[in-house]
Amino acid sequence: MSRVGVVGTGVISGTYLEHLAQLPGVEVVAVADLDVSRAQTVAAAYPGVRALSSDDLMADPDVDIVLNLTIPAAHAPVHQAALQAGKHTYGEKPLAVDRAEAEPLLKLAAANNLRIGCAPDTVLGTGTQTARAAIDRGDIGVPTAATAAFVTPGHELWHPAPEFYYQAGGGPLLDMGPYYVTSLVTLLGPVRRVTGRAGRSQEQRKVHTGPRAGTTFAVDVPTHVTGILEHASGALTTVLMSFDVWAARLPRIEIHGTEGSLSVPDPNHFDGTVELATATQRDWTPLPVAGGYAGAGRGVGVADMARAIRTGEPHRADGALAYHVLDVLESLLEAAAQDQPVDVASTVDRPAAVPLGASPETA
């Protein structure tokens, strides 16, 4: 059993705590937050969970894995503190706000024989994994192209404190892009070159909900990014990530090959229906579930990592994958700023598929 200490008890922590309580091989034993009262309130809702300061949580011998649910700007410092304390660490995406912050984390983890993992773990669910199984068994022939789109008017419409979505480490590309690019790498393999364009429609935005409704804040990052990812396999993916679109009818992800096409469900969710159309059957046909952790929720990547620690096997939502995804996203922004293609320096193997019927404790 791996004992988990959570740093950061904001909005996303609730779904993690709910699902971790149901997963095998992991147990949440402590929480910490800059807002001590918030950590105490969260701890009180879960028997056996203690509210600690962040420093005390890092030093606690009862904590094996630090789950880092802080804002993007704090991801790298909290990961570093956990690794320096001799803890394995797993965090929300992105791994860090940029490659310069992220790369030392991988080196520190490797030097100390520690694991580092990173969301999204949605790709371990039945949605993306069923699409992976279809590609691997040749349902669409050789993959040649893909499209990926996420568009919304912006998170300030629902989040009571949305500023961090518009600061370094945020924006549609670094906030939602990790879901899409992690899924694309899982399905099509690593990316070797990118090109793109980026812009923003507003210099300031307004909070729409909560006690600060009506207040404005600055926008520091691009809010509309589009580009092309050239995978090492030769497949080309067209991406669109935007906080500037009020309404659209766009598929989340489609994968196209020499013999057919796949419609892949929302990579921000664990499940969903995968549909197949082929040269001989042009109508979209739902595919039966063929892989992935059934009924998965946020935190399954932590359980997958905990199992891998016990068995000595690789874990799937690992730091190398998260670093490559961050490298792709940062390279896309650089390509837009430089008005030219940018080579992606890193690479990574596709993580192992999750077999049909697998449990995070055994597969």
Rank of each mutant, 00 (worst) to 15 (best):
A100L: 12
V11I: 13
A336L: 01
V7H: 01
A39P: 13
A85D: 06
R249E: 14
V151S: 12
L34C: 04
A43K: 08
A30T: 12
D35P: 03
G257W: 02
H155Q: 11
D244H: 00
T237C: 04
P178A: 07
T223Q: 08
P153E: 09
V245W: 01
I71N: 08
V185I: 15
V219S: 03
V97M: 12
E330N: 04
L67Y: 05
R132S: 11
T147G: 04
R115S: 14
Y293M: 06
V239K: 00
G199N: 09
P288K: 09
V289F: 00
G86I: 12
L114W: 05
R3Y: 03
P47T: 09
G169H: 06
D318A: 12
G171S: 03
V6K: 02
Q338Y: 00
L173D: 06
L52W: 02
A320T: 14
V6P: 04
A30L: 07
D98H: 11
V28Q: 01
P251R: 10
G125R: 07
T144E: 12
Q204V: 14
D60P: 03
S331P: 11
S331F: 06
A134G: 13
A198C: 05
G292S: 09
V31P: 07
E259Q: 14
E313T: 15
G196C: 11
G319W: 04
G292M: 07
V325H: 00
A248D: 15
S346A: 13
A146T: 06
G260C: 08
E103Y: 02
A145L: 01
G154H: 05
L95C: 07
H315N: 13
I253E: 04
V342P: 05
E101W: 03
P314S: 09
R252Y: 10
T223K: 00
T285W: 02
D266K: 01
T285M: 08
A294P: 02
T278L: 01
S359Y: 01
Q281W: 01
D220H: 13
A161D: 14
M58N: 02
G86M: 09
H224T: 15
A39W: 07
H256K: 10
A218S: 13
A168V: 13
V181T: 12
P120H: 05
L173Y: 00
L236N: 09
T311R: 05
G227S: 10
D304L: 05
S183D: 06
T216S: 13
L262G: 06
A213H: 08
A345G: 07
D136N: 13
T9H: 04
E259P: 02
N113F: 02
L332G: 04
V354H: 00
E334Q: 13
G125E: 09
D62T: 14
I255S: 02
F243M: 07
A168K: 13
G154A: 08
R50N: 06
L17F: 06
E27V: 08
L157C: 06
G141W: 05
L57H: 07
E92Q: 10
T126D: 01
A96R: 06
